[in-house]
Structure formats: structure tokens, C-alpha cells
């Protein structure tokens, strides 16, 4: 059974690239342009793992994670933060909202794939 991964990012070209790579790695991929859409996709598609950007219109990535972690049904979903900003504040914030991993843009495809695999193995 294929794992389903939800990617949330307001930069469409990036979404497309990540989608292409994950599909090559035999993952089912769902995407969202903003956090609202991301929430809806979590509820409707029940992803096994979520990759989210931080800087997005209206609701940012951290607020989104807090929301997920507050829902009993979804709080266990591993979440990777993929952010252009790698300041200590942001990393601390990610820990605070209980993100599982913090990846800094630009990261390599291998790095992303390895991170996803290790998180999925851990949770299964």
C-alpha cells in the first residue's frame, strides 16, 4: 500500500517539482496552495505525512501544525517543515509546535526522500 503525502506550499512551481519527485518514489501525493486547503486535504485524504511551508497567506505553517496537533484524529501525523528561513527562532518555533523535522530550502531530493522514509518507518 502506497503512503500518501500532503504537500502545502503557496509556490506552485515548487509544489510541482516535489510532486514529480515523490511520484517517482511511488508515493501518493496531495497538494495544497495554502493552509486552509491543507486542512481540508488532511481531513479528506488522511495523509500519512505532511510537508508544509512556513510563509503562506493568512495562516502560516506553524499555525497550521498547531491546529493539526490539536486534533486527536490527526495529531500523530508526522510533519516536515520545509522553509526558506532557517533562523533559530523558526527552528525553535517548529519544535514548540511539535513539528517532526525541519528542512531548509534548498534541500536535495535525496535528503527529502530519506527524511520521509525514516519518519514513515518510525510511525509504522
Amino acid at each position: 500500500m502506497k503512503n500518501r503525502i500532503l504537500i502545502i506550499d503557496d509556490t506552485i512551481p515548487l509544489l510541482e517539482e516535489i510532486t514529480d519527485i515523490l511520484k517517482m518514489e511511488e508515493y501518493e501525493v496531495e497538494t495544497a496552495n495554502d493552509a486552509y486547503e491543507g486542512m481540508r486535504k488532511v481531513a479528506t485524504t488522511l495523509p500519512d505525512l505532511i510537508i508544509t511551508d512556513v510563509l503562506m497567506p493568512e495562516i502560516n505553517g506553524f499555525q497550521f501544525i498547531e491546529k493539526i496537533r490539536s486534533l486527536d484524529k490527526h495529531k500523530h501525523i508526522p510533519i516536515i517543515v520545509l522553509s526558506a528561513q532557517a533562523s533559530k527562532e523558526n527552528i525553535d518555533k517548529a519544535k514548540e509546535v511539535k513539528a517532526d523535522l525541519y528542512l531548509k530550502k534548498p534541500c536535495s531530493a535525496d535528503e527529502l526522500i530519506y527524511s520521509i522514509e525514516s519518519l514513515l518507518n518510525k510511525s509504522s
Binding site: T11, P13, L14, E17, I18, D20, I21, M24, L55, L82, A84, Q85, K104, K105, P106, C107, S108, A109, D110, L112
Partner: peptide
């Protein structure tokens, strides 16, 4: 932010082509 994002996109695309 503004440069890393397109750079990420480029990087993923390149990785994809190689991989």
C-alpha cells in the same frame, strides 16, 4: 526566502533529472 524558494525549485528539478 525569495531566492531560496526558486533555488529549491531549481534544485529539485535538477535532482529529478539526475535521479
Amino acid at each position: 526566502h525569495e531566492f531560496r524558494t526558486p533555488l529549491s525549485t531549481i534544485n529539485f528539478a535538477a535532482n529529478y533529472l539526475l535521479k
